[in-house]
């Protein structure tokens, strides 16, 4: 899952794919603001066919958080 996530995040946030790890924080390490995260959420929803409601976004601060969240939602990876 990490490879695909890196690809999506790199494209959405204009970041270097190699620099993205599970520990990367969207705001601190990748410089994303709330609207960048909205766009990232949309890209993830479309890729993994899940819905990520507004209230869940607050708990997703790192790449690892999102991977765990998607796994809990039943996304295979």
């Amino acid at each position: 899952m990490l490879e695909k996530m890196r690809e999506i995040i790199a494209e959405q946030l204009n970041a270097e794919a190699e620099s993205i790890t599970e520990a990367s924080s969207f705001k601190e390490d990748l410089g994303a603001d709330s609207l960048d995260l909205f766009e990232l959420v949309m890209a993830l929803e479309e890729e993994y066919h899940v819905e990520i409601p507004s209230e869940d976004l607050a708990n997703l601060s790192t790449v690892g958080d999102v991977m765990n969240y998607l796994k809990e939602k039943g996304v295979e990876g």
């Binding site: 709330s34 609207l35 909205f38 766009e39 959420v41 949309m42 507004s54 976004l57």
Partner: peptide, 12 residues
């Protein structure tokens, strides 16, 4: 306004 929901609605 629910900013995220409105943003996603508009962009889609």
């Amino acid at each position: 306004m629910d900013g995220q929901a409105v943003f996603k609605f508009a962009v889609k």
